[in-house]
Amino acid sequence: MTKKSHRVLPGFGLSLGYALVYLSLLVLIPLGGLIAKSAELSWAQFWDIATTARAFASYRVTFGCALLAAIVNGVFGLIVAWVLVRYEFPGKKLIDAFVDLPFALPTAVAGITLTSLYANTGWVGQYLEGVFGFKVAFTPAGIVVALIFIGIPFVVRTVQPVIEDIEQEVEEAASTLGATRAQTFARVLFPALFPALLTGFTLAFARAVGEYGSVIFIAGNMPMVSEITPLLIISKLEQYDLPGATVLAVVMLVISFVLLLSINLLQWWAANRHSGRHIDGGAQA
């Protein structure tokens, strides 16, 4: 036995080196610069800027709305993906194509369109406000609507292939064993879908946290109520308050990183829990 292992796929060193350089140029160096810039401030100054009431409110709006939107997308994205995979109906291809639109549409267009729809004069907004007394545009609810719009393709597109992979036979097997539809969903289908759903949820959430274009049109941008952190950063920049902007950016970066890391860990756990990564013989009939 030699110690040196020969890989089947060559070029590990080269491809890893490339990946690192590429990531550094595009991601790590800009982020490092951001942190370096904010380090010009003293710890006390940093803390003061990061914890103003207005900043706190913006964190709450940004992450709260993103979370809510991602949850809504998780539920309805799953339904959309399920319908698109499992049922045949006229216009299915068209609807399938529509799902990708939020990827391509300029977010400002989405924001303006949604605003005009949900404003108290819009097609939807006038009924929501007139009949139910529920204001959407220019409130945090509007932010959630915009974030749902831009996030849904992430859930649908990650869950869809996994649903396609689930054999119908598995459901039939559950049925012959006496399981009801609800039991089949809860015990057989959902666990199989969960890792993919979590990935879709994470992507939608991450996208929503960083969203700017569509939100600023529909949010109304009232400080303390419907002002998102990215907007606060922009307004600080417009006042040439570069250190203040970087502080908020760093805070967002840290919160996002911690959230995404923990979701990734959860996802890793969900994906590996059952696949049995230790292959140790026993493969004979």
């Binding site: 054999e167 036979e169 598995v170 039939e172 097997a173 559950a174 012959t176 064993l177 006496g178 399981a179 009801t180 039991q183 015990r187 057989v188 666990p191 199989a192 829990r273 059952h274 696949s275």
Partner: peptide, 26 residues
């Protein structure tokens, strides 16, 4: 009826024990 499929149709995310126990648990 007990039904056995050509491609087994086992529940991938359940252990062998849980697969067999499924019919009793539901």
């Amino acid at each position: 009826v007990g039904f056995v499929f050509q491609h087994y149709a086992l529940f991938r995310h359940m252990s062998v024990f849980e697969n067999v126990a499924f019919g009793l648990r539901v």
